[in-house]
Design a protein around this nucleic acid. Structure first.
Lengths: 133, 133
DNA sequence: ATATGTGCAAAGGGTTTGCAGATAT
DNA sequence: ATATCTGCAAACCCTTTGCACATAT
């Protein structure tokens, strides 16, 4: 419930913010340009500056996450449980995958070997999806 | 041996390219701006455009890799064995870590669950390094 | 009523491009 | 000798900022 997420973070509930969140939800991993182009259809006065400002404040509030893929502009997704991103190098499609155990195993291995205190993991696997094989 | 790497990829051996590769080697994970500033000291005529063009061609040739970290400009490193990047969120230091087994376990788990053919992995762990704890 | 948010236009940075002269093969 | 590379300047993004007006609380 987007309204509650915003309220909990002392961010005002505006049509612009709701529209941005709805787009991100709809497309999963979306670029700024795509958000802008999609929203413009129903809300022609929406400005790019507003999108930038809101993505920054909602990222700050941990409502959305930025994700960076090789050779792509950054994209945004709703904040979710830790997960892996699978990117198809042929068609560019992106799949989320929750693999708790191996992710945890990796973090543990790393913590043991390094004496780092691990907080988060950003894992992107590049490959070829079933349809493109 | 940088000369051989370039020759093998039909890239001419120029002082600029060697200087860029030497900087990347020296600093491990370096931004474009840092490469430029460092090289300017010994070679004041080196232009930013040359750095951009060469990073692109040497990335294409798989001599260097671009790496993207959260909230940072992209950086470059020499192409190495698959490894994990550990980033300290306090001091920003970056550590490489070869953890073949857990990386492979993750790729396998993913391949099994998804029917993707996995080719590469980009893994970044964010945490706090020993000194900053 | 007040603090925040929006939209606009301008400014700011980073990156790419075209071209003439220089250099590696 | 020739294809490639370099450096410069301009062009071209994408992103941020300041400000006046609008809106949510």
């Amino acid at each position: 419930m987007f309204e509650k997420m915003l309220k909990d973070n002392h961010l005002k509930i505006t049509p612009q913010r709701l529209a941005i969140l709805k787009e991100i939800q709809k497309f999963g991993h979306i670029s700024i340009e795509e958000i802008y182009e999609n929203i413009k259809e129903s809300n022609p006065s929406m400005s790019l500056a507003t999108i930038y400002k809101n993505l920054a404040s909602m990222q700050e509030a941990r409502i959305v996450d930025e994700v960076k893929f090789p050779n792509q502009k950054q994209r945004y997704e709703l904040t979710k449980n830790p997960h892996i991103h699978l990117v198809c190098e042929k068609c560019g499609s992106i799949t989320d995958m929750e693999l708790e155990t191996p992710i945890q195993a990796l973090k543990d291995a790393c913590a043991n070997t390094s004496s780092y205190k691990i907080k988060e993991a950003s894992i992107v696997l590049i490959g070829i999806c079933e349809q493109c094989q």
